[in-house]
């Protein structure tokens, strides 16, 4: 048993705001898959927003503090050493806070001061390791273990794996990536590809797997967001994908909503389905569609999944 395999069996689970709102299907399927795989999730008590883009754009150090508070609770109150964040935004921000606290004394000073005022222990770098849901499943169960547990193979379902921008960028906040065989790649991420292949999917060559979904433009320039999403959907279809697998709630909801908007605004219809990777893994593990929240997606894939014998 590797160190990580043992270490990640029981993790502090940080769902973040999106998984309580637009991405309840991601939360539901993550918990369901964890349970099916015998992994233990303990939700971070009294967690707060990671700071996301809104807070960061006003004051980056407040964002660092908010993320550090989540890690402090996990470490100092729950005595956990791993925080698992399925949301790319949360994952990114916690990793960034870890980096900033290690490398920027000003950030350190602000966080110490704010933590004292808030009445909790200041987070110390290295107290916890922040991981993504992809790391969690890959390191504990792995492709081989997952393949052995598959009850309802994805049967050659053609999947374009879309990682979005925050899972790998900026490279310096992810020191564990790009470390050779076995590690994740920041230029060509593959953990989602590996897991879904083990569950029976066929991954298509998808050149836009880390390209911008236009999430930051959704409100200020909706047409630009729609065009960026439409291009991703078209590229997935050009690559023969039936499904775009996602692992970021912002990307996922953006793809779903702008797929509809592209039809209304530009008259362009795309048929590719948008499904969280945890939902696909759950189906492969034999879970019912409702257990993994297929009914909660905007992108209606139930009929398609039934046709494919997956629901």
């Amino acid at each position: 048993m590797t160190d990580k395999k043992a270490k990640y069996q029981k993790v502090a689970y940080y769902p973040g705001c999106a998984l309580e709102g637009t991405a309840t299907a991601y939360d539901r399927s993550t918990r369901a898959v964890g349970k099916a795989l015998g992994l233990d999730l303990v939700e971070v008590a009294d967690w707060n927003c990671c700071g996301a883009m809104e807070v960061k754009n006003i004051d980056a150090k407040i964002q660092t503090y908010l993320s550090s508070r989540v890690m402090s609770i996990a470490a100092n109150e729950m005595k956990m050493d791993v925080v698992m964040a399925p949301c790319n935004g949360c994952y990114h921000n916690l990793k960034k806070a870890e980096y900033d606290l290690k490398n920027d004394q000003q950030s350190r000073d602000v966080i110490d001061k704010l933590s004292e005022k808030a009445g909790h222990a200041a987070y110390q770098t290295g107290q916890v390791e922040t991981i993504h849901a992809l790391d969690w499943i890959r390191e504990t169960i792995g492709e081989k273990g997952l393949g052995e547990r598959v009850k309802n193979s994805l049967k050659g379902l053609k999947v374009a794996n879309y990682y979005g921008c925050m899972y790998t960028r900026p490279r310096h906040i992810f020191p564990e990536k790009d470390q050779g065989p076995g590690s994740e790649s920041t230029s060509k991420p593959h953990f989602m590809d590996d897991l879904l292949a083990a569950a029976g999917a066929v991954n298509v060559e998808f050149p836009l797997k880390t390209a911008c979904c236009g999430g930051a433009h959704t409100l200020s320039d909706s047409d630009m967001s729609t065009k960026l999403v439409l291009n991703i959907l078209r590229a997935a279809e050009a690559a023969s994908a039936e499904v775009i697998a996602t692992e970021c709630p912002t990307c996922h909801s953006g793809l779903e909503m702008h797929q509809i908007r592209a039809q209304k605004r530009f008259g362009v219809e795309t048929k590719v389905k948008i499904i969280y990777f945890t939902q696909l893994l759950g189906l492969a593990l034999g879970l019912k569609p409702k257990k993994v929240g297929i009914h909660e997606n905007i992108s209606d894939s139930l009929g398609f999944l039934k046709e494919k014998g997956l629901a």
């Binding site: 883009m53 980056a60 630009m224």
Partner: peptide, 25 residues
């Protein structure tokens, strides 16, 4: 995708800040 992304950034330099930098607006 490149032309759309760059067009977006030309219109609003903040696009991409969420994922790639910590520069406050």
């Amino acid at each position: 995708h490149l032309v759309l992304f760059v067009s977006g950034k030309m219109a609003e330099a903040g696009l991409g800040d969420f994922c790639c930098s910590s520069k406050p607006l």
